[in-house]
């Protein structure tokens, strides 16, 4: 229901900079996912949007209006906290009802709204309990229900599914996405989980150490990583990164030789995804380090002089450890990164 704009936002805690010069434009009705390693500033960013933390510098706008001096209460955002933050003295029913009461939603509507929200997170049987009598996953769902019970300008969700089992997580993921489409509420969603990010996001923001590394659609992030950090963060297993040198249209490293754009020279890092490698070929020579069958696919680790390379081999692939092996790359899917880590050699 509103766009969010962060312009040159900085947040420092004393001398430590938690978020650095952040520029972010969340379009109206967009589902934006913040993805990054622990401590990279995702929660801090979210708290600034919510108004729980004041940016040290920069502007925050919601729906075009400057929010810097607007109290958290008046920003009309709903947030799912990483630590749930349920009210321990109230039943789950009262917890979910609290925002309705505080926002003066007519009493007659309360029960309907609460039951709908509770049903969505499969919390129906627990409405009479206090938060203390729920499991971690149930508390998390209660926190989610409390956020979605009303229709705010913005949803902020800080790892709302982190404590659920795989099955429930998958079903809640679909529900959240569906709900967001239906309610058309701009959503910022924080997660550690790539699958969650890939499946939910309209766009993903990858952060590291308080700095945005890349903003793009899931496809974009996956197939066009902007730098080695993004390349090494996305995918499971992530992209193989091999340091070497480029000269006269050939990239070489210990045991590795591939063609590269003629414009490249000097120290270059080669990136290749595990699924773009196959057993047999002439791009890489090494020894088998490990073979891990998982059923539908076999993970193969190949040792070269400098580095272990992960490969997704066919389901029936088997090989004795330490045997010599040759690997071929899909040379249309090679990535090259310069010394500063940024992508180079793109046509």
């Amino acid at each position: 229901m509103a766009s969010i704009l962060l312009k040159n936002v900085v947040k420092s805690f004393g001398s430590f900079v938690g978020v650095q010069d952040m520029n972010l434009d969340v379009v109206d009705e967009e589902f934006l996912v913040l993805l990054g390693p622990s401590g990279c500033g995702k929660t801090t960013t979210m708290r600034m949007i919510a108004g729980l933390e004041h940016p040290t510098e920069g502007e925050i706008r919601i729906g075009g209006a400057l929010m810097n001096d607007i109290d958290a209460r008046d920003r009309d955002v709903a947030m799912v906290f990483q630590g749930y933050a349920l009210y321990p003295n109230m039943s789950i029913y009262e917890n979910i009802r609290f925002p309705l009461r505080m926002r003066q939603v007519p009493k007659a509507k309360h029960d309907d709204l609460i039951r709908r929200a509770a049903e969505m997170v499969e919390l129906g049987p627990f409405l009479d309990r206090k938060p203390g009598a729920l499991s971690g996953g149930q508390r998390q769902r209660a926190a989610l229900a409390r956020a979605i019970v009303r229709q705010p300008q913005v949803f902020l969700m800080d790892e709302p599914l982190s404590n659920l089992d795989a099955k429930l997580r998958a079903s809640m993921r679909v529900q959240i996405k569906h709900m967001q489409r239906e309610l058309k509420v701009t959503t910022v969603y924080v997660t550690h989980d790539q699958i969650e990010a890939m499946t939910l996001a309209d766009r993903i923001v990858i952060m590291n150490k308080g700095v945005i590394q890349q903003i793009g659609t899931p496809d974009d992030i996956y197939s066009n990583p902007a730098n080695t950090f993004v390349a090494g963060f996305i995918g499971s297993p992530p992209m193989n990164l091999i340091a070497g040198t480029a000269q006269n249209g050939t990239f070489s490293a210990a045991g590795v030789k591939v063609p590269c754009p003629a414009s490249l020279s000097g120290n270059i890092t080669l990136g290749i995804r595990p699924e773009d490698c196959q057993v047999g070929g002439d791009n890489l020579q090494g020894q088998v380090y490990g073979v891990e069958p998982t059923g539908d696919i076999t993970y193969l680790t190949v040792r070269t002089a400098n580095k272990n390379i992960e490969i997704k081999a066919g389901r029936e692939f088997r090989a004795p450890i330490d045997s010599a092996i040759a690997v071929g790359f899909d040379t249309t899917r090679l990535y090259f990164f310069g010394e500063d880590g940024n992508r180079v050699g793109v046509k």
Partner: peptide, 25 residues
């Protein structure tokens, strides 16, 4: 403190946080 913050976002004034949450707890 996070509970207070949650209540702020839910639209509670300081006094309603006090009456509804702090005092009962």
């Amino acid at each position: 403190e996070e509970i207070e913050e949650a209540a702020r976002l839910d639209g509670a004034s300081w006094s309603s946080i006090f009456w509804n949450i702090s005092l009962p707890m």
